[in-house]
């Protein structure tokens, strides 16, 4: 009896508060916009029965998503921003992870903690901290103007560049940790063997280190790419009106336009897009687990 309870309590909780809500989103995405409360039709009623209810559902909202270019541009721009910033995070994160793996043993615990520590501080505050740096009269412009590097303040805040910086800054621990884990396992005698066999330093790095940390790189990239795709806080604080990201579009559609069915349709499509990288990520993790066991 107790065994059953252990399973059934969290099971029912997730059914009620995860699966059913998502089913509701799916249903509303197939409904019509209406000037009502709640602002969509049809409402399910027992008198009409399920058949009548289902017959009123259609894919109109999804068709709408393809006709209004705001939406597909937002999807494309989200994909592009997520991909670019993932690449940037990799470029910034890899040398740090590499240096951590090479650091003396007694430093490692501290370095690890230093990478994880920002994760415990508020995400919102970490994003916010860049607003003061990147704004037109911000610290970066003050510094560069003071040094005489530039004569006109750079416009960074409210551009894509600021969004990239924000994403790299907040998601970099997710990139560093898996790469560090992979590099940490790497036997340093492999590099020596490669050099012994005639590789230069750079060549040994390219031919041995990088391929052997491949799983860490892949895991890190997915861990950055997947959450970035639906990101809301970073584009709304650091991005401008020109930085389209689908999370922000959904939020505005829902809160500002009260277009519940459209917002729901946007959500459903976003989930469909996310399924691909998630499945790929799962496969990579599985392969990695098998390789280790």
């Amino acid at each position: 009896m107790r065994r059953v309870l252990i399973i059934i309590v969290p099971y029912l909780w997730l059914l009620a508060l995860f699966l059913i809500p998502f089913a509701i989103v799916l249903k509303i995405s197939l409904s019509d916009v209406a000037m009502a409360r709640p602002p969509y039709l049809p409402q399910f009623s027992w008198e009409d029965g399920l058949g009548a209810f289902l017959s009123q559902l259609d894919f109109e909202n999804f068709t709408f998503l393809t006709t209004d270019d705001l939406y597909w541009k937002a999807y494309l721009s989200s994909l592009q921003i997520a991909a670019t910033s993932t690449l940037l995070t990799l470029l910034v994160g890899y040398p740090i992870a590499y240096a951590m793996a090479r650091a003396p043993d007694e430093w490692r615990a501290t370095l690890m903690m230093l990478v994880i520590l920002p994760f415990w501080t508020s995400f919102l505050i970490r994003v916010y901290s860049w607003m003061g740096i990147l704004s037109q009269e911000g610290y970066l412009n003050q510094l560069l103007l003071g040094l005489g590097v530039i004569s006109e303040p750079l416009i960074i805040l409210n551009t894509k560049v600021a969004v990239y910086i924000g994403i790299v800054y907040t998601y970099i621990p997710f990139m560093i940790l898996p790469i560090y884990a992979a590099l940490h396992r790497l036997d340093s005698s492999l590099i020596e063997a490669a050099e012994d066999l005639g590789c230069s330093r750079a060549k040994a790095f390219w031919l041995v280190t990088v391929p052997l940390s491949r799983n860490g790189i892949i895991a890190g990239c997915f861990l950055v790419f997947i959450p970035t795709l639906g990101e809301f806080v970073i584009p709304s604080l650091l991005g401008g009106s020109g930085t389209l990201m689908i999370g922000k579009v959904l939020w505005e559609e829902f809160f500002n336009n009260r277009g519940w069915p459209i917002a729901s349709a946007v959500a459903v499509v976003l989930v469909l897009i996310l399924i691909i990288p998630i499945v790929l990520f799962q496969q990579n993790q599985q392969k990695q687990n098998e390789a280790q066991s």
Partner: peptide, 14 residues
């Protein structure tokens, strides 16, 4: 892995 906007939206609708 679910974007927060979707989790939030779906719970609100519930």
């Amino acid at each position: 892995v679910m974007p927060e906007v979707i989790t939030g939206l779906s719970l609100l609708l519930l």
